[in-house]
Write a protein that binds this DNA or RNA. Sequence first.
DNA 1: TTCATGGTTCGAATATAGTTGAACCATCGA
DNA 2: TCGATGGTTCAACTATATTCGAACCATGAA
Lengths: 104, 104
Amino acid sequence: MKDPSELPHPSRADLKLTQVLFALSDPARLAIVRHLAAGPQEMANCCAIDPNMPKSTKSHLMKVLREAGVIRNEAKGRNRLLSLRQDDIDARFPGLLQSVLAAE
Amino acid sequence: MKDPSELPHPSRADLKLTQVLFALSDPARLAIVRHLAAGPQEMANCCAIDPNMPKSTKSHLMKVLREAGVIRNEAKGRNRLLSLRQDDIDARFPGLLQSVLAAE
DNA sequence: TTCATGGTTCGAATATAGTTGAACCATCGA
DNA sequence: TCGATGGTTCAACTATATTCGAACCATGAA
């Protein structure tokens, strides 16, 4: 019984460095990644970043991060649980996330 | 006596993480960075990568990398000497370049 | 079951980035 | 000093990304 509301996520082996770098190269997306570094958050809470942002735009940001393999986006009741795929990124690109998160 | 053929380079303090990540997020640009990691190279030699690429396109790639502060592009006689700004990037974003270059 | 909620998807518009020929510029060799 | 060489800049075009309203879809609460 597969949940049809599950979104596609690339497998660890399919992560592409340039795609990950691109996903991180936008200030809004990088801010989300920084937020998630502290632990998984529900989308509704996490994006206190800019409450004025239309939800379709928010959803798009998450899509870019998800398709790059940077975050996981899972259904959780009526909400979405967002989490950083730290293990996967660390496994494929050791030190990358750490240095990005440490920067300034 | 300032050389008018000197191109503008951002200072170390002006490097922006997202801009650096963006510059590295393109396969062709990343390939150039990898080449330069071995040491400075003249543009004519370095870009054996794709000899068919028009020079205006090559020049544009270099511009994006230069303006992000990733590479230095200096006049050297009739040619251009390209070099990775490893010291500056390391100083501002420790470990970043290393992890990017180490990836696969 | 019905409604409100939180989020995705679609489609169209806008903005940004990449590609390229042509014009130009400085340098070195003849 | 003239021409060839290596490269930048400009302008126009194409392609890709972003933005956002509207339609839609599950879920949980009433």
